[in-house]
Amino acid sequence: MPRHKNRRNDGRSRRRPQRHKDVLHARGGHRTADFRCAGCQLAVPLAAPGTAHRNHCPHCLVSLHVDGRVPGDRAAACRGRMEALSLSVRPDGEWLIIHECRSCGELSANRIAGDDNALVLMRLALRPLRDVGTEASGALLAL
């Protein structure tokens, strides 16, 4: 199944290209081997299908707060654990995970990778419909 469903064929992309990142993940960089996830402690390989930069654990979707405003700048001094908060969808149909830092409350968005746990993603997508509070039940009843 293609990851982009409505990609335009005229060669122009509406989104800006991904920023250049000079973080050396492999080849003698700060990480040369698999790393342990901060959430589930499972070993995570560096290579992620669909992206050049592994952002989150594919098993539990937990990330680390290392970047500041620009993705890849490694400017955040927080180093807190970022847990998946919700899912967003790009106009081209690609899913984004919204992470929230458990330490400082900062939010960040990142594309899902090809090896992310589909069951965990599905639980995240169904969360607004499952835990129905007072305001959410009003939204359901209005339909």
């Binding site: 919700s86 967003s88 984004l96 919204i98 929230e100 968005a109 835990d131 509070g133 305001e135």
Partner: peptide
């Protein structure tokens, strides 16, 4: 861009 759910069940709107 997204709806987030608190532990209390209340919804939050995520803006970008």
């Amino acid at each position: 861009i997204s709806i987030a759910v608190l532990r209390t069940g209340d919804w939050m709107v995520v803006h970008r």
